[in-house]
Amino acid sequence: MIIIGERINGMFKDIARAINDRDPGPVQEWAKKQEYNGAHYLDINVGPSSTEPVEAMKWLVEVAQEASDLPLALDSTKYDAIEAGLKLCKQPAMINSVPAEMAKMERVFAMAAEYGAEVIGLAMNEEGIPKDADMRVGLAAELVATADAFGISPDMLYIDPLALPCNVAQDHGPEVMRTLREIKMISDPAPKTTVGLSNISQGTKNRELINRTFAVMAMANGLDSAIADACDDELMAAVASARIILDMDIYCDSFVDVFKQRNR
């Protein structure tokens, strides 16, 4: 399971302040911490309230790369900011994200092809997030087919079936699981899958428990990656166990440490 460390995000107060003051400290600290604990990518998000998203993205990318060698997932709805960031990335990055809307797909896939970037595709369109799995899978297939037209191999795509908070949209849970399974039938190679893990537990009690339970259930249904808190030790241990049970890693007694240390 590929963990995209979620912590460098202007949504968090310390990061917002760091961006504002151009203080690399907190950003670099989180970059290192997440890498140490087993993240495979660092998500980079300037936050919803940034007034200068392009400049802020450029600064975050440079500062993060000084502290960590991990590839970055540039997270923004403002594609100019993403493109500015891509130009500065030292290794192929990930674009987070694009919905199945033609104009946006054209903009993002052209950019992805140019910079060799992977792309997170959202199973939604102008009409929003469908409830049932068939519709979600149909949108995923559109993302794959459109990417293919830009010469982007399906395995460069991470489809996010879009999990909703389990306290308000409980009936979406089984549909998300089914979507994850069926996405693997779209193409060969199949697209990869991802989720914003903490969405599932918004506004609930005992969020970490719900997050990690969701993670292992989704893995059993074909989830390849998650944007998640890499510093949640219980989550990482659960993911490491799930990988063993699903025969994705060869067991050894130190399996949790081995999972976390893969990138070191």
Partner: peptide, 10 residues
């Protein structure tokens, strides 16, 4: 035994 193989290397 592949599990022991890996553990021993660790």
């Amino acid at each position: 035994d592949i599990n022991i193989c890996k553990q021993l290397n660790i």
